[in-house]
């Protein structure tokens, strides 16, 4: 193996080594640069907390804490302004409750069907449909609720107002179906087949296996999907902002217009509230309340799915 034009790669590598100190500088800097980038997500959280808390404190200088959380009157404009958050809370919770009445049963049944009954072929058709449903922007659902669902409901419920909480609640439910369906399905499909086979081997029907074996085993994943669904409903903005109007009445009548926390924020920011006014600060107080609610929901969901993650 005599090679006249011996390349002597090793010599070249050695020669390069001395000149390429640049590389080792990069090598040392990269972890720091990446760390700084990774920190930005934490700065975002800190930024959110800081802005919300700071302006909320200003708000509570003008409005007593107790008045805010127990007040049933929200009248942000005019001379005798009142800032009670209860009308917004009822709006938020009623719309979320309606949404969950739709999303939980349908989402769960879809999950059962996809995980336990559907053949691979059927699943391959149905899952993309749910993905499309999940990918539709909420503004489109808002349009749909306002221009189609409300007029449709009006035929059956004549006293339904043109803006009401029922219609956006229902549409929000449809929007959340894919989320609950896919998270619950994940939980159910991770139940090992041996458990199903054990029950089927004793002569159980599929329905019985689903009820008595699969759902109990997947319970933590299913519950946490519900909680995440609620959190999503509480934070949803555009559907309610469009279809539920801006009435700040403290009511439980779903045929009437109600305002949610998110819709209130939209209304106030759209109205160019002068910085420094109580109205302006109320934006942050409401947003902070919203943030706390969704954060609690998310933490609960995380706790449930972590704590009860069965080692099958």
């Amino acid at each position: 193996m005599t090679d006249e034009r011996d390349l002597r790669v090793r010599d070249m590598i050695q020669a390069n080594k001395r000149t390429v100190t640049f590389n080792s500088i990069i090598e040392k800097c990269i972890p720091t640069i990446l760390f700084i980038i990774a920190i930005i997500s934490i700065l975002t959280t800190i930024g959110i907390l800081f802005t919300l808390i700071r302006e909320t404190i200003y708000f509570f200088r003008d409005v007593p804490f107790l008045d805010f959380f127990t007040g049933t009157k929200l009248k942000p404009l005019g001379d005798a302004a009142e800032f009670g958050i209860l009308p917004l809370l009822t709006g938020t919770f009623i719309s979320s409750a309606i949404a969950m009445l739709v999303a939980i049963p349908i989402g769960l049944m879809s999950a059962v069907f996809l995980s336990e009954y559907a053949s691979d072929k059927v699943r391959r058709i149905l899952k993309p449909i749910l993905e499309v449903l999940a990918g539709i922007p909420t503004i489109v659902y808002g349009f749909f609720a306002f221009t189609f669902v409300t007029p449709l409901l009006n035929r059956f419920i004549p006293m339904l107002e043109p803006t009401n909480i029922l219609s956006p609640g229902l549409v929000m439910g449809v929007m959340i179906i894919p989320m609950i369906a896919s998270l619950s399905e994940d939980a159910m499909s991770s139940v090992p087949n041996a458990m199903r086979e054990g029950a089927l081997g004793l002569g159980s029907t599929k329905l019985e296996v689903t009820w008595r074996v699969v759902i109990p085993a997947a319970m933590s994943g299913i519950i946490s999907s519900f909680v995440l669904g609620i959190s999503r409903a509480i934070g949803e903005t555009m559907i309610v902002a469009i279809a539920s109007g801006s009435s700040k009445n403290f009511t439980f009548d779903v045929t009437q217009s109600m305002q949610t926390m998110t819709a209130y924020i939209v209304e106030v920011t759209g109205g160019d509230a002068p910085a420094g006014s109580t109205l302006y600060y109320s934006l942050y107080a409401v947003a902070f309340t919203l943030f706390v609610f969704t954060l609690i929901m998310n933490l609960i969901a995380q706790y449930i799915s972590k704590k009860f993650r069965e080692g099958y």
Binding site: L7, M12, I13, N16, K17, T19
Partner: peptide, 19 residues
């Protein structure tokens, strides 16, 4: 390997690959 050790010349790389 040659590239990460700083050998960029196409001709030399061709030769290394063949060899």
């Amino acid at each position: 390997g040659p590239r990460i050790h700083g050998i960029k010349n196409k001709k030399i790389l061709d030769e290394i690959v063949e060899k």
